[in-house]
Write a protein that binds this DNA or RNA. Structure first.
Lengths: 315, 315
DNA sequence: TTGAAAGCGCTAACAG
DNA sequence: CTGTTAGCGCTTTCAA
């Protein structure tokens, strides 16, 4: 009998007393405590966590919805979350979505079914309208800004960041500037385009390529950019991996970096540092850490995490 | 009342009937099923998963013990696990250990406390003797080979792989070969040394540097290797990131790759492909996938995952 | 300081 | 086909 009443019986006490020693309550006489501890040891007993979670109504577990696991940016966030979760004795369950709305809803249902105390959304496909109702069942924290008061946010101010980057390029004499993004329908793509418009005016379609995730995508993007009607003198990539691909294609075509072409990446990833590519670090680890803190504190604050620019030799 | 008996009452049936429709049992009349479904819909009811897990004694969740999250090799394994877990409607909880034995034991306790159906150990600090007893409480699968019959294994035959690599180097005329490893006390470091001994004989201490994880570590290692009494003509790195650091330091010193120095990395990571570094791919994603299958099937098989060599321009 | 007993929300015999 | 009932293993009043 590997349950609490078995232990109680063997120790000659009631289940409540066993429960008390298990939970370090006071008002347990030393001798009974000893007796219980002894039996627990002998029987090699461990309490059933599901029973405890059921009663307590909380699991000390947070779910993290993220589109892709093998993606440096999301990995940084996850890493931040794991750091803080470990510190606070929380578990982290990874919820891969591939931007599939049904999967996202399925994960939110798990919040409702009391499996998680909260959910962190690294990135999403679903509308906020369909997400918000679930905030009744636990904290929902987003790693992207939203004005909805039901949702806590730990985010990077991407619009400002993009603005700064384009402005920097302009200040250095670049007027033909192209850029890549990850998903066409995403918020940050919109912000990128808005920032471009603000600094350079109308965006020629051939200066924007989306669906870039990895090195190869960067390579292909560079190929197209360098054949465009008006060849860009600078490219802003949506990640250092992509930037690396651009760098490689360019150099393979005897295009000199930065003399003929400036490149800026994002997120300060190894590939970028290898190639000496200037990068905008949105501090995604920090974003993840703050996101966890928000669910820990059941807070719905909006926390803006500062970004920083790391200048290297590609601009 | 957001529980099953509330639903039962409102639908005018017993809890068992509600339970039956919830679990798609047959032998429920269509009209009662309709009625129940209607109330569930109206009340926006979702069953409490903790109660279910408690009764069923299983959680459809697997824990993954891995030392570091932000490590390309472990990320590949995790990715494989997540792929298969998603397919099979399992959840994955990440258990970061930093090779801390206490943390590892803590995670195994969670298996015992019925939080997980199984645990996958990507890499470990604890001895098998202390781990094995926990296999009574759920499947434990290792991503490294062990002869213990209690433990399922999905692994890469590293000794063979290292042997092949050193042999390849030797065949190409390299006799002064150095290498890096991650942890001194690890199994794979031992296998690396054994393989070296087999191919080249005794290992000069200055041909082995451990504790290499990232690009910077590779850079520092290269610095030392290139100053060693007998400068190596080839270096085998324990990862493409480290290999990248070696490549960069070498080229920064006007050392020609591969003319003056051959470099081989591992795991086919982006940094390696950027720099054209030959690499040994241990198919870690596949290792993760097979590991998950083992816990799914409660199998204790030993599955050897084949490795492959990807030749590029660094040898 | 202790124990009895009433749940937490659900499943699964068992009886009808 | 349906309902009653006894749990799953634990926490927590309440009374003593």
């Amino acid at each position: 009998m590997a349950n609490i009443s078995g232990i109680a019986k063997l120790a000659g006490v009631s289940v409540s007393t066993v429960s008390r020693v298990l939970n370090n309550h006071k008002y347990v006489s030393d001798d009974k405590r000893e007796a219980v501890l002894k039996v627990i040891e002998e029987m090699n007993y461990t309490p059933n966590k599901n029973a405890i979670d059921l009663i307590r109504g909380e699991t000390k577990t947070v779910g993290v919805i993220l589109p892709y696991n093998n993606n440096p940016a999301f990995d940084q966030m996850l890493n931040g979350i794991l750091n803080k979760a470990s510190e606070n004795d929380f578990s982290v369950t990874v919820l891969p979505s591939e931007y599939n709305k049904n999967k996202e809803i399925g994960y939110l249902q798990k919040l409702k079914s009391k499996l998680f105390d909260g959910i962190i959304i690294a990135s999403r496909a679903s509308d906020w309208e369909t997400i918000i109702p679930y905030s009744n069942y636990g904290s929902i924290v987003s790693c992207e800004y939203t004005h909805n008061t039901e949702i806590g946010c730990s985010y990077s101010d991407r619009y400002s960041s993009y603005l700064d980057t384009f402005q920097l390029l302009k200040n250095r004499g670049h007027f033909a500037v192209a850029f890549t993004t990850a998903r066409l329908e995403s918020n940050s793509t919109n912000q990128m385009i808005d920032a471009y418009n603000e600094v350079f005016g109308e965006l020629p379609t051939y200066y924007h390529i989306s669906d870039c995730q990895c090195l190869d995508d960067g390579w292909e993007a560079a190929k197209k950019f360098l054949q465009s009607p008006e060849r860009p003198t600078a490219i802003y990539a949506n990640g250092d991996e992509v930037a690396g691909g651009i760098y490689l294609y360019a150099t393979s075509q005897q295009v000199n970096i930065p003399a003929d072409l400036a490149i800026i990446g994002q997120e300060n990833q190894p590939t970028g540092s290898v190639l000496g590519i200037t990068t905008i670090d949105h501090q995604l680890t920090k974003v993840g850490e703050e996101a966890f803190n928000l669910v820990l504190n059941k807070s719905r604050e909006k926390i803006k995490v500062p970004y920083s620019i790391i200048e290297r030799e590609s601009v």
